[in-house]
Every structure is written in C-alpha cells, then in structure tokens.
C-alpha cells in the first residue's frame, strides 16, 4: 500500500459520498445520469464477488462493502426516492453499445477463463467507460451543477492516482496488472477534457457550461 493508492481510494470514496450528499441535501438528482450510476453498481457487483472467496485485508473488505452500499444507495435515490427529479429525457445513452463489446472483450482477453476472473475483467473494462453516459448527458444539456463537477473531478482523480500507484508498484514490487493498467489509462483519458474545463472554469468560480 502506497500513498498514491490510499489517496486514490480516498478520492474515490469522497466522490461517491459527495454525490450522495448532493442528492440527499437537495432532494434532487437532476443532471445526474442514472445510467452511469447503474453501470458503477454493476462494476462493483461483478468485481467484488471475491468478497466471498478471497480475503485480502480488513481494509480491502470494509472498502468493498462501503463502495457497494454507496453505489446501490445512489441508484435507489435516483430511481426510487427522488425519481420525480430524475432527468430521464436527457439520460439517453444507449447502454448496449458499451455492454455488448465489453462483454465480448472480457471473454476474449482475461487472465484465466473462469467465471470470477471473467466477471472481474468485465468490471475493469466496464469501469473505464461507465462515466460516458454522464459525460454524454452534460454535453447534451450543455451544463453541470458545480457540485456535480466536484464529483466528476474526484472520480477522475481516483483513477489518475491509481496510474501513479501502478508505476510505483512496478518499480518497488515488480507488480504489473496489464488489464487494469490499460483500462485505467483509457478511463483517465476520458476525463482529460473534463479536467481542462474544471480547472479553467469551475476553479475560477464559474459554472461549467458548454458553448
């Protein structure tokens, strides 16, 4: 465990809690893509099945349970408790365009052809693109609330910090997880455009709106 990994996990947790608090306090989930949140719930579900088969550490187990709870609570807020405020008309990304190729790819390119390992691979590939419905929604409406941009910033920062973690682990432990690294790079690239807007607009006190 290194400092990049810890900061990455904290950033990930912060992002999810920020989103939950935003929805809870405003009692409104307008501008949030329910489809992205469903994908994240699916990511955690398929990745953390090893909770039942493989004990890594208390930290690992506790974080996995918290991530799962946060993901499902967020989905419940959007499609259950505050569904009247859910902007489904702008959440129109076609999920099959992501799910079909990623399912195929996880069967083709994995570490071992076993159900748990294929599901883990599926979750890594899916996570790299799970934010696309959210980014698509923002490009469609042309704006995002500032709190939503903070959420996206920490979510992107998490995977960028994991890149630093992998470089560190490669040099100190000779650890190298090709599937996670390649997907992590792809995932981080999707946030670059957003990072630019976040720094040039949101951090200068302006609302994120697209021309």
């Amino acid at each position: 465990m290194n400092v990049f990994r810890i900061l990455g996990d904290v950033s990930h947790l912060l992002a999810m809690i920020l989103l939950l608090l935003k929805i809870w306090r405003s009692k409104c989930c307008t501008g949030i893509s329910g489809k992205s949140q469903i994908l994240f719930a699916l990511v955690f579900t398929t990745r953390y099945l090893d909770l039942f088969t493989n004990f890594v550490s208390l930290y690992n187990t506790v974080m996995k349970v918290i991530f799962l709870l946060c993901a499902y609570l967020t989905v419940y807020m959007i499609y259950g408790k505050f569904r009247k405020t859910f902007d489904s008309e702008n959440d129109t990304f076609r999920l099959e365009f992501l799910l079909v190729p990623i399912t195929g790819l996880s069967f083709l390119e994995n570490y071992s052809f076993t159900p748990l390992e294929i599901l883990w691979t599926f979750s890594i590939y899916l996570e790299s693109v799970a934010i696309l419905p959210q980014l698509f929604m923002i490009s469609k409406t042309g704006e995002a609330e500032t709190i939503t941009t903070h959420y996206l910033f920490f979510l992107g920062l998490y995977r960028a910090l994991y890149l630093a973690n992998w470089i560190w682990r490669y040099h100190t432990e000779n650890f190298y997880d090709q599937i996670a690294v390649v997907s992590g790079v792809v995932q981080t690239i999707f946030y670059c455009d957003f990072f630019y807007l976040y720094v040039t607009k949101v951090l200068k006190g302006k609302k994120l709106s697209l021309p």
């Binding site: 990745r47 090893d50 088969t53 493989n54 570490y111 071992s112 390992e117 883990w120 973690n165 000779n174």
Partner: peptide, 10 residues
C-alpha cells in the same frame, strides 16, 4: 505477479 492470489486493489 501470481494471478491465482487474486486482486488486491479496489
């Protein structure tokens, strides 16, 4: 890395 040992990252 021993893949059989499982994945230790989140």
């Amino acid at each position: 890395k021993d893949q059989e040992a499982g994945h230790d990252e989140l």
